[in-house]
Design a protein around this nucleic acid. Structure first.
Length: 906
RNA sequence: GGUGGCUUAGCUCAGUUGGUCGAGAGCGUUCGCCUCACACGCGAAAGGUCACUGGUUCGAAUCCAGUAGCCACCACCA
């Protein structure tokens, strides 16, 4: 019999089995024909180069909780999965593969290279989705979308053309963030600033044919070859007399003018700024203002070009060293200081970015920002936690145009065609372009070689997942009708600008509707030292290993349990063993549930003599038959259910987990099951026992349903074990429990708490007495409160069992027996008659402490109650509660004092 | 520089509209138990001026202001 339900739960076996069954039965595929109301979530598409990390685990688990919850609530639920082509990341990855064979993408050519990337994508691109399955997620795999699928690409192209025709996409020259490593432009969001220790060099810019010079400070001496002026502040009396004169750029030996511009801050550095329009955004502005020439002295790969004369061809940082040496040699440096400042780095490649002048494509963001701000400000879109709205607003109000062109091959190619003489338009194909430009058939057009920023397809995700413009024409689709707008987006706060804001822009722009109603920003996951998880720090264990060790349910549970809304999640990651010990929370909880289930199953088999299932039992407990404990656990169950709803609705997912944990472990296992054991007495009539068994099983089934969204596997496994013999063989748990307010009895719960306190006190007294664990004791409880007497009488047997008592007497009068250990809890006096001696001093000390505590509380309540303003202003209920509390405390106090004097006389 | 967040037991944190908090949980620690579901367990204990200062209020861990420390995001002057 014991082998039938093993003592310890092995999660992985059950998890593999159930995922296969769920998949085979396609139970998570959504139907647009359903008459149920729709509920949908878009899965943030992971990069095809990605592998599973704990950010995904948390993010995906939360989504699955909501998906499963809503499904059980009777919604037609659709969770749209997919992957992102991740332009730079993927192209770099494949180029690395090529490099192993000594090849570059240029060796293959564009077409052949793209073939290679597609091959790579087919082979490795779905790894991440397979990994996600290990978590047991219930998305609709039949709707999986890849951002470069034809349907999505069609929408991307149409959107580009529309925005181009509207003038919201333009081509322009500007200083952009250039990645010398990937040799492409980046958007502002793809650059992260880090503090770097460098040097500030003060160089000597001599006046022509003079020994006088202007001191010019720079951290980038290698850019002097692009200098076209030196600026001073017109109000700077040290220098304004030189305005209009020429100085000679060191090493370059070119004369450039001294100009006046407010941009030069007299209080910073030397007050003189070299102007290098091609390599600094501010200088570029100055250049335009003063109509200065532009000299680009750096190549796309980050080496200096012919303007750098003898330094031509040197990599920029190597060049800096050599140039500084040369400047020193020629005594052109006045001084060198240590200098800490911020440098932009490529978020992906990690190399310092180069502000670079080039022709790129931009999206005009102002109009889009305006329409995206509205729905958040007016509450149509809600952020959780709310404070991100401010960040969102600030970004949109200070937005700059979005550089969308990338000098890559992997991505959506920009649908723009150029004539040989440089005219251009956006079009679906060459013919259309010719038509738009009024050209004859024989004019050769060339397509723009660049591709679009990856996020230019991601921002359409709410639309492309639902097949919007999948054929380039059809705007309305069944999916859109059923599932748009989506209900919830779960994502990390670091892509609020990259993705969240832009999705809102796009759907507001193209559909004039919000893309989602609620946005939940997940916790950033950190290690015990508060560091972000990263491969290089070695503090990022492989989730699959953790899942393998603890189980998917345990991993899901622990992650949500530890993840508070709006705060970072700290995990105790052991770098050496790559383990996360706190995963034991979930594992132990799963094991606890398993054993509770196992216990009930074993009892069931006894009570029902096999081959029957409590749920087929027609006899149920009548309300008169419900014991005090039964009614208590029912009340607790429904309090818990209503708390679960409240927590899930407010996205307090950690509270949801905690609520379940406490209810299952503390209320159900520690108290109810223990009492149930006593209630299920051999002397009962069989039919009563069967009805009681059914009552307990019903409770447990409710528990399984409550935990199903967060622990889908173990709940499914146990549910099927329970229902095995029944005729009802549906695939998965259905119908989420609903709270029944009528069954919640707060007075009853409070009364039960007194019983719990009494039991705990008796147990403590046992320890005080140094009793053997199995030693049975006699207990006398006394109180003059009739309701308590009544209650204690009714639950006498379970209490006796919980405290291992031979006999338990309940009376009004306290016994006169001298030889007893006595204690007082609330209004209940507890006596344990003893055979041996007790340590009087220790008892006195304990009582003394308790007296002090009580006195303190009493005087605080008394002062409250003697305060007239409190009595008049406070809520009458509160006053009443305080009065009752005081009454109870005074009673306890009197009893304790009594006991104290009695003891001290001995 | 701007904005937001955090500070409650040794550690990680709950504490949702101020009164049911007569401050909680898990881990860790200490003591006792293989009690016929569970040692991934059971029972018990020790441990807190709720960062500091002031204010609002009859009443503050909870609201407001300031201070300190930590963190994040945004901007960025050579």
């Amino acid at each position: 019999m014991l082998e039938k339900y093993p003592k310890s739960y092995s999660p992985r076996e059950a998890e593999r089995k159930w995922y296969e069954i769920w998949q085979k039965n396609r139970i998570y595929e959504a139907s647009v024909q359903s008459t149920k109301p729709g509920y949908s979530i878009l899965m943030p598409p992971p990069n095809i180069t990605g592998i599973l990390h704990f950010g995904h685990v948390l993010n995906i688990t939360i989504q699955d909780v909501y998906i499963r919850w809503k499904r059980m609530l009777g919604f037609e639920v659709c969770w749209f999965p997919g992957t992102d082509h991740a332009g730079i990341a993927t192209q770099t990855r494949v180029e690395k593969e090529l490099a192993k064979q000594g090849l570059t993408r240029y060796d293959l050519g564009r077409e052949k290279f793209l073939e290679k990337v597609w091959q790579w994508k087919e082979e490795y691109g779905n790894i991440i989705l397979r990994q996600l399955r290990e978590l047991g997620i219930s998305c609709d795999w039949s709707r999986t979308l890849f951002t470069m699928d034809e349907s999505a690409s069609n929408a991307v192209r149409e959107v580009f053309i529309r925005l181009f025709d509207e003038g919201l996409i333009y081509r322009g020259k500007g200083i952009i963030n250039w990645s010398p490593l990937s040799q492409t432009a980046l958007s502002d969001e793809e650059v992260e600033f880090r503090e770097v220790k460098e040097h500030l060099y003060t160089l000597r810019y001599f006046f022509e044919n003079s020994s006088e010079y202007l001191p010019v400070a720079t951290v980038r001496p290698e850019t002097i070859f692009g200098d076209v002026a030196v600026a001073v502040n017109p109000n700077d009396e040290r220098y304004n007399k030189f305005i209009g004169k020429n100085v000679v750029v060191p090493l370059a030996n070119r004369a450039v003018p001294v100009i006046a511009d407010e941009y030069a801050d007299p209080h910073f550095g030397t007050g003189c700024v070299k102007i290098t329009p091609a390599h600094d955004p501010n200088d570029f502005e100055v250049g335009i203002r003063h109509n200065l020439p532009i000299i680009n002295s750096i190549n796309p790969d980050g080496t200096l070009n012919e303007y750098a004369l003898e330094f031509n061809g040197l990599e920029r940082f190597e060049a800096r060293k050599r140039i500084v040496e040369k400047l020193k040699e020629k005594n052109l440096i006045e001084r060198i200081e240590d200098y800490v400042h911020n440098v932009g780095f490529s978020q992906r490649g990690g190399e310092p970015i180069e502000p670079y002048l080039s022709d790129q494509w931009f999206v005009k963001m102002k109009p889009l920002a305006e329409i995206a701000l509205k729905p958040v400000l007016d509450g149509r879109i809600r952020f959780f936690p709310k404070h991100w709205e401010k960040t969102y607003q600030h970004w949109l109000e200070n937005i700059r145009d979005w550089c969308i062109s990338r000098q890559l091959w992997w991505g959506h190619r920009i649908p723009v065609y150029y004539t040989p003489d440089g005219r251009y338009t956006a079009a679906r194909n060459v013919d259309e372009a010719r038509k738009k430009l009024n050209l004859s058939k024989n004019v050769e057009l060339t397509q723009d070689p660049d591709v679009l920023d990856t996020w230019f397809s991601s921002w359409l995700w709410p639309l492309t997942t639902m097949r919007w413009l999948a054929d380039g024409i059809t705007e309305d689709t069944p999916d859109l009708q059923k599932f748009f707008p989506t209900d919830l987006l779960v994502t990390a706060p670091d892509i609020i600008f990259f993705w969240v804001a832009r999705m809102i822009m796009a759907t507001m722009k193209f559909k004039n509707e919000i893309p989602f109603r609620d946005v939940y920003f997940t916790s950033t996951i950190r290690d015990g030292l508060g560091r972000k998880l990263s491969k290089s720090l070695g503090n990022s264990p492989d989730p699959l290993m953790i899942i393998e060790k603890y189980g998917a349910d345990a991993t899901r549970f622990t992650m949500t349990y530890l993840s508070p809304l709006g705060q970072d999640l700290r995990m105790d990651i052991d770098v050496k063993t790559q383990d996360i010990p706190s995963m034991e929370i979930g594992r132990n909880f799963a094991n606890k549930i398993w054993n509770a289930g196992r216990f009930l199953l074993l009892k069931r088999d006894m009570v029902f003599l096999q081959d029957c299932c409590p749920q087929n039992q027609e006899r149920v407990l009548t309300s008169e038959e419900l014991s005090f404990a039964d009614r208590w656990i029912l009340s607790r169950l429904h309090s818990t259910i209503s708390k679960v709803y409240r927590n899930l609705e407010n996205y307090r997912i950690n509270e949801y987990s905690k609520t379940l944990y406490d209810f299952v472990w503390r209320d159900f296992c520690d108290w109810y099951i223990e009492i149930f054991k006593v209630q299920l007495n051999e002397n009962n009539e069989l039919s009563f026992n069967q009805a009681l068994m059914r009552f307990a099983m019903d409770l447990f089934e409710n528990i399984l349903k409550l935990i199903h969204p967060i622990m889908p596997f173990i709940s499914e496994e146990l549910w099927h074990l329970i229902r095995n013999k029944s005729k009802n063989k549906s695939i998965s748990l259905e119908k989420y429990p609903e709270p029944n307010e009528d069954l919640i009895d707060e007075v009853l719960e409070a009364d039960f708490e007194v019983i719990q306190m009494v039991v705990e006190e008796i147990r403590r007294m046992r320890v005080d007495l140094g009793l053997e664990p199995n030693k049975k004791i006699d207990v006398i409880l006394s109180t003059n409160r009739t309701n308590l007497i009544d209650m204690l009488q009714k639950i006498k047997a379970p209490i006796s069992s919980l405290v291992r008592a031979n006999s338990l007497e309940v009376s009004v009068e306290s016994p006169t027996n001298e030889k007893a250990l006595t204690s007082i809890v609330r209004e209940v006096e507890i006596h344990i008659p003893l055979t041996g001696e007790i340590d009087i001093n220790r008892e006195l000390e304990r009582i003394q402490k308790e007296l002090e505590r009580l006195n303190k509380n009493i005087s605080s309540i008394e002062s409250k109650l003697s305060n007239q303003t409190f009595l008049t202003k406070a809520n009458p209920e509160v006053v009443e509660r305080e009065k009752v509390k005081l009454e109870s405390m005074k009673e306890t106090l009197a009893k304790l004092e009594n006991l104290y004097t009695k003891l001290s006389k001995i």
